[in-house]
Design a binder for these strands. Structure first.
Length: 572
RNA sequence: UGGGGUGUGGCCAAGUGGCAAGGCAAGGGAAUUUGGAUCCCUCAUUCGGAGGUUCGAGUCCUCCCACCCCAGCCA
C-alpha cells in the first residue's frame, strides 16, 4: 500500500515490532496480528494521533494483520458526533483503510454489562455507596495504603440486585459505583478497588437513553480489545500503570488469546501545542480561526495548510517509536513536506511584495510567451507559457540601492537573469517623494540572452522570479509561521504553564497585494505549488477565481537569510 | 524515604558483550537560469554518574543522580 515510503535504507525495527516478531515465532495468537486505533470522539485528531495511526495501521500492514478503527465512546458527557465525523475523515485522508471494521465501544455495552455481572458472581466486584470524596479518602495516598470500603463485603446477591438497580436508573448520578475488589493496599493506586461503572444519566450519541450506567476506560478497554480479538493493544506511556488492571480484568473473565497492552511515548513537537485541552482553548477563545486553522497541528489544520498525507506518514514513520519522552524538532516535519513537494509541486512565479521593473529598451507593446519548466525534478511535468513584457514586477527585496556583501541580486549597474527570460542590467531607480521608498527600477535587457537561445550561455550571479505587470493576477497570500515561539530554556517551567504567552504574534502575516502568473487563474483549492525562490504554497479553501488565496505551507530553505543573520551577528 | 517508566551528539534514534548506524539541524565545498533541489566533506575517543565483572561493557552486576507518569465516578 505505502511501499515506496521509508526509502531511506534499512529501517531499524522498533521494540513493538520486536514483540510481534517474538509472538509470531512462538505462534502466540496462532500467528495473528490484530491492532486497533481507539480514539475517544471528544476532539479533533492532531499529528500526535497520526503517529499512533501510522504505528497501528502500519504494524498491521507490515505483519499481514488487521487494524480496526474503534471509537472509545464510554463517556457521553464529553463526546459528540461532530468529532466522530472529523476523525473518520482524517484517518481516511491519511490513507488508511479499516474496511468493514469500524467499531464503537458503545456497541459492546450489553456484553460489558454481562461481564460485570460475571465478576460480581465471582465475588470480584461490588457496588459501593461511598461518594466521590469518600472514595478518594479511602483510596489513601502514594505512601499510605487505602482503607477498605464498608460496602466491600456485600453478598453477591445484594451486589447483583444493586447493580441491576443502577442499570435501571433507580439511583442518582454519583450515588453508587461498581468497583473491582482487588487490593486497597496495593502500591499501584489503580489496583485499589478501581471504579468499573458509574451512573451518568445522560443520553449517549449512539445508544440514546438506553443506559444510565457507563463503563470506565479501565474496564471497557481490555474488553473491547478482547471482543475484537486484538492481539497487541498499543497505547501511550501514561497507561503503563494501568496494565496490571488490564491484565487482571481479562484473566478473571477470559482465558485464551488475551490481548497484551504495549506502551510507547506519545509525540511532542517544538513550537506548537499538542494537548487536546490547550488546543481547545486556542480554538474556543479565538486565538485561532478554528480546528482547521493552518497554524494548528491538527490533521485538519495541516491539511488546510497544504501538508500532504504522504509527508505526514513519512514523518511519522521516521521519527521512531520508543519509550523515551522526547520532543521532535518541528523542522523535521518541515523537511518531510519539502521533500515531498520538491518532487511533486509545480513551479510557478509569484511576487509577494511587488516592485515595478521597467525594461527601457524593450518594445512597448510586445508580449512574448516564454517557456517555463513546470518541475525540474520531474521532466514529465512538462512546461507552460509565461507572458513577458516591458513592465514587470519583481520582489522588493531583490533590488538594493546599496547592496550588502555577497548580494547577488539587482543593484545599480548590476546584472541578473530573469528566470526563463533575459539578462537585465539595472540603470537606475525612482524614489517615491513622500515615502522615500524606491517605487520603480529601470533596466535594459540583453536581447541575445534569452533563455534557451544561442546567447543564453552567459553567466550572471543571480536569477530573479518576476511577473508581467499587464498579465499578472492579484492574490492574497497568508504567510504562516510557528504557532509558538521557541522555548527559553531558563524559563521552561513558566513557559509550559503559560503557553498563551508563547504564542507567536507573527504566526500569520496576510499579504494582499501579491501578484501571481496568469496560469494560476483557475487554481483549484488544495493544489500545491512552489512559488519559485519563496516556498511552497497551497490554494486555500476560501480561494475563488478572481480572488485567489494562498497559504504558505513552508518556505524554501534560504541560505541568503542565514548569511544575513550571520552578518547581523557580526555587526555588519 | 510508595509504585511504574526513561536516560546514546543541538533534536529524534539504531545498538541485545567485540572496536558508537541513520535522519533532522549545523558548518564547509562542488555545481546551479530557483542563494531551492542535487552531490561531496565535517560534526559522540564516548553512551546520566561512580564503582565492579570480563581479554573486552552503551550492552552484565551494584550503588547513586536526573527527568517523566500515577491519588478523575476522564481517556
Amino acid at each position: 500500500m505505502h511501499s515506496q515510503e521509508n526509502n531511506n535504507s534499512k529501517e531499524s525495527v522498533n521494540f513493538i515490532q520486536s514483540i510481534i516478531d517474538r509472538d509470531r515465532e512462538n505462534n502466540k495468537y496462532g500467528g495473528r496480528v490484530h491492532l486497533r486505533f481507539p480514539p475517544e470522539p471528544n476532539g479533533y485528531l492532531h499529528i500526535g494521533h497520526a503517529k499512533s495511526i501510522c504505528l497501528n495501521f502500519g504494524l498491521a500492514e507490515k505483519n499481514n494483520g488487521l487494524c480496526n478503527l474503534r471509537f472509545d465512546d464510554t463517556n457521553p458527557s464529553k463526546e459528540d458526533i461532530e468529532y466522530i465525523d472529523s476523525i473518520i475523515r482524517d484517518v481516511r485522508w491519511l490513507g488508511f483503510n479499516w474496511e468493514d471494521r469500524l467499531y464503537y465501544a458503545s456497541d459492546y455495552f450489553d456484553k460489558m454489562y454481562e461481564d460485570a455481572v460475571s465478576l460480581i458472581k465471582q465475588g470480584k466486584a461490588y457496588v459501593c455507596d461511598l461518594n466521590p470524596e469518600e472514595i478518594r479518602e479511602y483510596r489513601g495516598t502514594f505512601t499510605k495504603p487505602g482503607k477498605e470500603s464498608p460496602y466491600r463485603n456485600r453478598s453477591i446477591e445484594e451486589n447483583l440486585s444493586l447493580f441491576k438497580q443502577m442499570k435501571d436508573g433507580i439511583f442518582e448520578d454519583g450515588s453508587r459505583v461498581l468497583r473491582a475488589k482487588i487490593d486497597m493496599s496495593s502500591a499501584n493506586l489503580n489496583m485499589r478497588d478501581p471504579v468499573l461503572y458509574r451512573i451518568v444519566k445522560k443520553s449517549h450519541h449512539r445508544t440514546g437513553d438506553k443506559w444510565c450506567i457507563y463503563p470506565m476506560y479501565d474496564y471497557a478497554h481490555p474488553l473491547e480489545d478482547y471482543y475484537e480479538r486484538i492481539t497487541h493493544s498499543v497505547c501511550t506511556l501514561e497507561f503503563e500503570d494501568h496494565r496490571p488492571l488490564y491484565d487482571w480484568l481479562l484473566s478473571n473473565l477470559y482465558s485464551s488469546e488475551l490481548p497484551q497492552q504495549i506502551e510507547f511515548a506519545r509525540l511532542d513537537l517544538t513550537n506548537t501545542i499538542m494537548s487536546k485541552r490547550k488546543l481547545r482553548i486556542l480554538v474556543e477563545e479565538g486565538y485561532v480561526s478554528g480546528w482547521d486553522d493552518p497554524r494548528l497541528p491538527t490533521i485538519s489544520g495541516l491539511r488546510r495548510r497544504g501538508y500532504t498525507p504522504q509527508a505526514i506518514r513519512n514523518f511519522c514513520n521516521r521519527i521512531g517509536v520508543a519509550k523515551t519522552n522526547s520532543v521532535v524538532d518541528i523542522r523535521f516535519l518541515e523537511h518531510c513536506i519539502r521533500e515531498d513537494l520538491n518532487k511533486n509541486a509545480q513551479r510557478v512565479m509569484a511576487v509577494l511584495n511587488p516592485l515595478k521593473l521597467i525594461i527601457d529598451n524593450y518594445p512597448d507593446n510586445l508580449t512574448e510567451e516564454l517557456e517555463g519548466e513546470n518541475n525540474p525534478e520531474d521532466p514529465s511535468a512538462g512546461s507552460r507559457k509565461v507572458p513577458f513584457s516591458k513592465t514587470l514586477y519583481i520582489e522588493k527585496e531583490d533590488f538594493h540601492e546599496d547592496p550588502p556583501k555577497k548580494y547577488f541580486r539587482l543593484a545599480p549597474g548590476r546584472e541578473v537573469r530573469l528566470k526563463n527570460a533575459y539578462i537585465v542590467k539595472s540603470q537606475g531607480f525612482v524614489r517615491d517623494e513622500k515615502t522615500g521608498e524606491i517605487s520603480e527600477v529601470h533596466c535594459t535587457y540583453d536581447p541575445e540572452s534569452k533563455s534557451g537561445g544561442a546567447g543564453a550561455k552567459r553567466k550572471v550571479k543571480g536569477t530573479l522570479h518576476w511577473v508581467s505587470a499587464g498579465h499578472a493576477l492579484k492574490a492574497e497570500v497568508r504567510l504562516y509561521d510557528y504557532l509558538l515561539l521557541s522555548e527559553d530554556k531558563k524559563q521552561e517551567e513558566e513557559a509550559k504553564a503559560n503557553f498563551i504567552d508563547r504564542i507567536n504574534p507573527n504566526s500569520l502575516e496576510v499579504l494582499t497585494e501579491c501578484l501571481v502568473e496568469p496560469s494560476l487563474a483557475n487554481a483549484v483549492k488544495g493544489n500545491k505549488y512552489q512559488f519559485m525562490r519563496k516556498g511552497y504554497f497551497c490554494v486555500d479553501l476560501e480561494s475563488k477565481t478572481g480572488n485567489l488565496v494562498f497559504n504558505r505551507i513552508v518556505s524554501l530553505r534560504d541560505s541568503w537569510e542565514k548569511i544575513m543573520k550571520i552578518n547581523q551577528g557580526k555587526g555588519k
